[in-house]
């Protein structure tokens, strides 16, 4: 006997994500889900960003990490509220983990919630967290073949931050092809070319955060 089920496998996660989205919306918070490979520079970008947003946007940070609190400790040093989620082996954050993190914040006091996902270019993008925008951080030294190898993360992201631009001359990466492929997957994506280490190109990125952070605030 065949039994039709026809159910979205991610239905439960999507339902919890919708609840999170509602919580963010009612608190007037814009939530970002920052994704990228391990070592792409997500945390360093976030640190340089927090320095620039200080006194202008009130930011909270949820750090996703498999086991450690190393990233959360770096963020905490910038004096912003931060909560560490340890996934205990899981390669991505899901909506339930984020929902459990939210009571640890005074949401009324925040404009922007930055959720730094587990370092991974594949899995996190499948799991909505209730964020308004997904952002992919790709360090250029990862190679210009990455967009076509991992198209979904570029398709679903509103912005792509190309980090470690200071290393462009030291690697065989064709920046023109890299950007062309990103735009062919997602013509509407915003691309920011930055070096978090050299602190270049961060102005446009921070300006964009101001635009989206104020929209609902």
């Amino acid at each position: 006997m065949e039994i039709a089920i026809k159910t979205n496998v991610l239905a439960t996660n999507d339902q919890l994500a919708a609840q999170n989205k509602d919580i963010f919306h009612r608190a007037g918070i814009t939530a970002l889900n920052i994704m990228g490979s391990p070592g792409a520079g997500k945390t360093t970008l976030l640190e340089r960003t927090l320095e620039r947003l200080k006194g202008q946007l009130r930011v909270g940070v949820i750090e996703g990490d498999i086991y450690t609190a190393k990233d959360a400790e770096r963020i905490e040093a910038h004096g912003v509220p931060v909560y560490q989620i340890n996934t205990g082996g899981a390669c991505h954050l899901d909506a339930q983990m984020v929902q459990k993190a939210l009571p640890h914040f005074n949401l009324a006091q925040l404009d922007l919630m930055v959720i730094e996902n587990v370092g991974n270019l594949v899995c996190p993008v499948e799991f909505s967290l209730g964020e308004e925008y997904k952002v992919v951080v790709l360090s250029i030294i990862e190679g210009d073949d990455k967009p076509l190898k991992y198209p979904l993360i570029f398709k679903e992201s509103t912005a792509a931050v190309l980090n470690k631009m200071d290393l462009l001359d030291f690697c065989d990466v064709n920046l023109v092809n890299l950007k062309r492929d990103i735009l062919s997957i997602n013509p509407e994506i915003k691309i920011f070319e930055v070096s978090s280490r050299q602190q270049t190109g961060l102005e446009q990125w921070v300006e964009w955060l101001h635009t989206i952070g104020k929209k609902s605030g």
Partner: peptide, 29 residues
């Protein structure tokens, strides 16, 4: 090859209508 462009008119304004499915369709018992 993930080039999201209309082959008819060349427009980049395209919507994905299929390909994001992760569905449990049926079971046979």
């Amino acid at each position: 090859e993930f080039h999201f462009r209309c082959p008819g008119c060349g427009s980049l304004a395209v919507d994905v209508t299929q390909g994001r499915e992760l569905a449990l369709e049926s079971m046979e018992v």
